[in-house]
């Protein structure tokens, strides 16, 4: 009796588990989850830099208009300002601590290991330059980073998202090439 019960119950549980997996885990795996890291090594606040200070995106991400990647600023570039804007000039204690971290990294000549938020697969060759040349704003894909504080990925940035835009569903109503070799490498 017990054996017969086990023969029914165990497959039933396995089947239920399988169905549960199909309907919950698989869509979660397939759907592109915007990647939100818990913390960057330094609490860099985009809102302060973009809104309060008024720095252009391309002042720090300076290869975006010419190159493939937008680029992370060097630590040296942080020191363009933070050599003068030191911890004593910060608006609150939290910001003062973070500025101190940057200056300490510079003094030690150590790079900051930022956590990358927007990462495409290896077989995708996205190039910033033609998109900016066509007149798109950074915010078209990256959202309003200036009011984010800690940056989050706001769009799926998967192939469907790319093709949607390339077929004309974008603010500028422009169409882009949709050939595989344009992006896939």
């Amino acid at each position: 009796m017990k054996l017969r019960l086990a023969l029914v119950v165990v497959p039933a549980i396995l089947l239920a588990g399988f169905i549960f997996f199909i309907f919950t885990a698989v869509p979660a795996l397939i759907a592109s989850q915007p990647y939100n890291p818990s913390a960057q090594p330094i609490h860099f606040d985009h809102e302060v830099h973009v809104k309060t200070v008024g720095i252009e995106c391309t002042f720090c991400h300076r290869t975006a208009t010419q190159g493939i990647t937008a680029g992370y600023p060097d630590l040296q570039q942080c020191m363009f300002c933070h050599a003068v804007v030191n911890e004593t000039l910060a608006s609150n204690q939290h910001n003062a601590d973070e500025i101190l971290k940057v200056r300490q990294k510079w003094a030690a000549q150590e790079a900051i290991n930022w956590v990358r938020i927007h990462r495409l697969p290896d077989h995708v060759g996205f190039v910033h330059e033609p998109h900016l040349r066509a007149g798109f704003q950074c915010a078209t894909c990256h959202g309003d980073v200036g009011s984010m504080g800690q940056v989050k990925q706001v769009r799926a940035l998967n192939m469907g998202d790319c093709l949607d835009c390339h077929k004309g569903n974008n603010p500028l109503k422009l169409t882009g090439p949709t050939e595989c070799a344009t992006c896939h490498k």
Binding site: P121, H123, E179, C180, A181, H184
Partner: peptide, 12 residues
């Protein structure tokens, strides 16, 4: 077959 006449392998 791309419009440029290339025979393109799409790895993914």
């Amino acid at each position: 077959h791309s419009s440029d006449g290339l025979n393109v392998q799409v790895y993914n």
